[in-house]
Computed example of a mutant assay.
Amino acid sequence: EDKPILKEKIDSYKGRGVFATKPIEKGSFVLEYRGELITKEESDCSEGFDHFYILVWTTTFFSYCVPFSIDASQEDGSLGRLVNDDHKLPNCRMKRIMVDKKPHLCLFAIEDTAIGTEITYNYGDTKWPCDLKHI
């Protein structure tokens, strides 16, 4: 479950977003971007690219990189899919955490965050939106 220190709110400019209801300390885990782990081929066939992350990592069983996506297009009550992009001054950074050989995309605070502040991170450049090869 998401922490009770966050809530969904509608911003008149951006639409849905995630906002802090309590202060968040720099370096703290904020939330997980959740969704179904699917193959690159499955994501290529999906309609709408709004809530996908392309992941590339080396498995422990093979010596090559395997592309996967996390499909967060379905509403599941979690807040990760609602966090907005900020290329200039994001307050969080996405990190891939491996648990039981499966990736989990987790946001961590890169600065102290005050109550009422929108949670944001840099999605990446326009050529590779949502690409996490760098983590």
Rank of each mutant, 00 (worst) to 15 (best):
D2H: 03
I5H: 08
L6M: 02
L6V: 05
L6A: 07
K7Y: 08
E8A: 06
K9S: 03
I10F: 15
D11C: 07
D11V: 14
S12W: 11
K14N: 14
G15I: 06
G15R: 07
R16M: 06
G17S: 11
G17L: 02
V18S: 05
F19A: 02
F19K: 05
F19Q: 07
F19C: 03
T21E: 10
T21V: 11
K22Y: 07
P23H: 09
K26W: 11
K26V: 05
G27W: 11
G27P: 10
L31R: 10
L31V: 00
R34Y: 13
G35Y: 02
G35S: 11
G35D: 08
E36N: 12
T39F: 14
T39L: 05
K40W: 06
E41D: 15
E42H: 03
E42A: 12
D44L: 11
D44Y: 13
C45R: 13
C45F: 05
S46N: 12
F49H: 15
D50W: 15
D50F: 13
H51F: 12
Y53Q: 00
Y53N: 06
Y53C: 01
I54F: 12
I54P: 02
L55I: 12
L55Y: 00
L55Q: 00
T59H: 14
T59G: 15
T60A: 15
T60M: 12
F61W: 08
F61S: 12
S63K: 13
S63Y: 02
C65F: 11
V66A: 06
V66G: 01
P67Q: 09
P67K: 03
S73M: 05
E75M: 10
E75H: 15
D76S: 14
D76G: 13
G77D: 12
S78A: 09
L79D: 00
R81K: 07
V83N: 03
V83W: 00
N84L: 03
D85M: 04
D85T: 06
D86G: 06
D86F: 05
H87Y: 02
H87R: 14
H87K: 09
K88M: 03
K88E: 09
L89M: 07
N91T: 00
C92S: 01
C92E: 01
R93H: 04
M94E: 04
R96K: 11
I97G: 15
I97V: 15
I97H: 08
D100E: 13
D100R: 14
K101H: 13
P103V: 03
H104A: 12
L105M: 04
L105K: 00
C106V: 03
L107D: 01
L107Q: 01
F108A: 00
A109D: 01
I110V: 15
A114M: 08
A114Y: 10
I115W: 04
T117M: 12
E118L: 02
E118M: 11
I119L: 14
I119A: 12
T120P: 09
Y121L: 11
N122T: 11
Y123D: 05
G124F: 05
K127D: 14
K127M: 06
P129K: 07
D131E: 06
L132R: 02
L132N: 09
K133M: 04
H134A: 05
H134R: 13
I135S: 03
